[in-house]
């Protein structure tokens, strides 16, 4: 780049070009939605079949894996992202995302604890709503409509889940995550291509 003076038009172009170059590829966020969406859905499906088939083995290991593996993956990816942003550029969006998903993780952990102590059936609508809230805020931050619609759909699905007190609530959870994590997640993955 030459160190020269500019016309007003060129100045505007320089500003536009630099801001454009700094724009992050939002598809980088898709991985989290897909990993979490698949992990919880597979665990929910196994739990549903477990109840229907009246299997007797303990399901805790399934849920420990469904939450533990994506958690470790998310922490590792967050660490990598933090390292990269320190050495290159830190976008304000990174801080907002950390606040949204850190807050969601905090609420999620409290709900899990309440579920263990007081029973799961009443927790599902709240869990679905918390999943939807994070997706909705993320969609609004990166201006990606499928995530916004996915997040809103979870509020409706959470409302339906309030009236379901059988194992069918697991199917509702799968529907919620498919609408809010998997479908928008795949759309986001291919959005920059």
């Amino acid at each position: 780049m030459k160190d020269n003076t500019l016309t007003q038009q060129q100045s505007m172009e320089v500003i536009r070009e630099m801001i454009q170059r700094s724009k992050q590829k939002f598809s980088q966020y898709a991985g989290s939605f897909l990993v979490w969406g698949w992990a919880i859905n597979v665990a929910a499906a196994i739990t549903y079949v477990h109840i229907i088939q009246e299997w007797t083995f303990n399901l805790y290991f399934v849920w420990i894996a469904a939450i533990g593996i994506p958690s470790i993956w998310s922490i590792y990816m967050g660490y990598q992202k933090g390292k990269e942003s320190t050495q290159h550029a830190k976008s304000p969006l990174d801080s907002y995302m950390l606040a949204v998903w850190g807050g969601s993780a905090g609420v999620f952990n409290i709900l899990m604890l309440v579920g263990v102590v007081n029973g799961w059936i009443i927790m599902y609508p709240l869990l679905i709503a918390v999943f939807g809230w994070g997706v909705l805020i993320t969609g609004a931050l990166i201006k990606f409509r499928p995530l916004i619609f996915g997040g809103i759909s979870n509020f409706f699905i959470a409302g339906i889940a309030v009236f379901v007190a059988t194992e069918a609530i697991l199917l509702i959870l799968i529907a919620a995550l498919t609408c809010s994590y998997l479908i928008p997640g795949y759309m986001l993955k291919y959005s920059d291509k």
Binding site: M1, K2, D3, N4, T5, L6, Q10, S11, V14, I15, E17, M18, I19, R21, S22, K23, A89, K90, S91, P92, D94, S95
Partner: peptide
């Protein structure tokens, strides 16, 4: 009003 200085400032506007 200089290409390189303006580029640096624009990058700083777009990133924390």
């Amino acid at each position: 009003h200089n290409q390189l200085r303006l580029s640096i400032m624009a990058l700083l506007i777009a990133n924390e």
